[in-house]
Design a protein around this nucleic acid. Sequence first.
DNA 1: GCCGTTTTCGGCCCGACTGTTTTCAGTCG
Length: 643
Amino acid sequence: MTNAEIARVFDHIAIMLEMDGGNPFRVRAYREAARVIEHLAEPAASLAQSEGRLQQIKGIGKDLEGKIRDIAATGTTSTYTELSAKYPPSLMELTGIQGLGPKRVKALFTQLGVRSLDDLAQAARGGKIKDLPGFGETVERKVLDAVEKLAAAPVARMLIHAAWPVAGELTQAIGRVPGVEQVEVAGSFRRRRETIGDLDLLVCGGEASAVMAAFTGHAYVAEVLARGETKSSVRLGNGLQVDLRLVPAASFGAAMMYFTGSKSHNIELRKLALERGMTLNEYGLTTGERVVAGRTQGERLVAGRTEEEVYRALELDWIPPELREAHDEIELARQGGLPRLVEESDLHADLHMHTDRSDGRDSLVDMVRAARERGYEYCAITDHSKALGMTRGFDDARVEASIAEIEAVRRDVPGITVLHGLEVDILADGQLDLGEQALAKLDWVIVSLHSSLAQPRDVITARVLRAIEHPAVHLMGHPSGRKIGARNAADLDFERVFERAAELGVAMEINGQPDRMDLSDRNARLAKERGVRFTIDTDSHSTANLGDYIRYGLFQARRAGLTREDVLNAQPFAAFDAWRRGPRRRSTPVAPATVTKPTRRAKPKPDNPPAKPPKPPPKPKSKAIQAKPSKPRPAKPVKGGRR
DNA sequence: GCCGTTTTCGGCCCGACTGTTTTCAGTCG
């Protein structure tokens, strides 16, 4: 049983309890436990084996630990079995429809016998829904609409990479409305999650009607879901839901915090506010007496204009959005111990780049030039090894021939140190896909899993451990092998792999390819705890990837709480090279290139994205969207439902 | 069902929008 599967059972219990009119706080306990389990770095099923271990996790008590153990062992638990007898599991998907929550689904089920999407569509078409108490014609029409849309394109989360240019365009368009002072994207986008369920825009200034008109009338918008004075919601042509809120300047910081989330982070903050006799909501942090009828009197705004102001009033340091997941960031902020997260300007190198010598699009010299233009002090060229036949991967002889090619590019592109590397396949038995002599000639050896990813846990773990034991190995590339929405991570015992990698001095990669973003934030966090060091790479197959993909690697690293010190390619070459060569490795020295400029990385070019999180996204990179604001093409959805 | 400048109970985060109602429940974030 994976964590996601266990979380799903808890989510379903929460929904069924709500249908059953259960205690709302009990419902919430199941929901929160589901979130906690989903975000665990280790399998809950393993933790459940030692009594009391899960109870150390906030949100999981004795009872839920027992239920997790049941689910891990049998796939279910008594509460779930009993509730399922009353409410068929097929009802769960109905609660995913916009406007249908547990209460309405229950009414549909008990009064009309609706059990499935088909039943629902039939009832709506037959005009039966509108007569139910609390429903009406509008609800019926919206339900039918939603069901038909769902049949056409299931609700899904979108890669942050796909949402990036859309966010940029919408931000710009609304920013052009007269009087608008600020437009920011909040939500999971600002927390830089790898996938996002929707976009949350916050706007300050401007005439409400003009802002809402610019928003709901934008060429990307396919459907207006709601339109009010301070809030509107739309669905774009690509299926993405976007919410916009207009907030007063005095509340902008509080609103940014509120809508950036995460939900659990906000709950922690509100509790902190209450402990100090204050109230925190999207309008600000206030003190004062509450009076009847929802109206408050004698309230005094303590803070709200900026996020810094609100955090300070709660006696906390400002917390970078990437960390706002209610792990330990609030405690760290209280103690002044938040990490200084790695930034784009910290990076001195990209250590995973392909060329047209294997499956890349651009030449060796172009790739090196592009790395130099980004201001990098050094880089590694890492084409594939022969096991990946379709990529024209290198065999031993090709590695030998490559030595002269690397020497040539070092002469042709001065000012950047070029490491002669290779991305060597880890064969099914854990052997490396290259001979000893060839390995010894390389400056930089990445080992990666590209095939037989479905091996059982013990087999693939032993395979990876064998591979990283090899003294030539520096780095494990995209360690889990996952492709978001397309392929699961290998069933590795990451804890063992990370512990051994830390002992051996083998680094783990955070790969910035948008559908990999691998290691995940959770695994990177676990790896850091075990003492592993990292690289943040693009795995570029073209010069364009170098500037684009690094963003997503950085997002993941920042969400994991990594600092410059954790990241090898955030070190100047001398420090990096010292790590590269020892102590157990036999790597030969690489002469650094003559550097005519300071060793600190040059400023990113102006068209690069801002490294600091509070800034709005940069101009859209997609030429298609920049050229004409037509409706965006449907982005490839990824699994996971909305959240 | 969890949690506790806590200990076996009492409290648990908050507001906007919608539609159906005529003051509010349900849903959503």
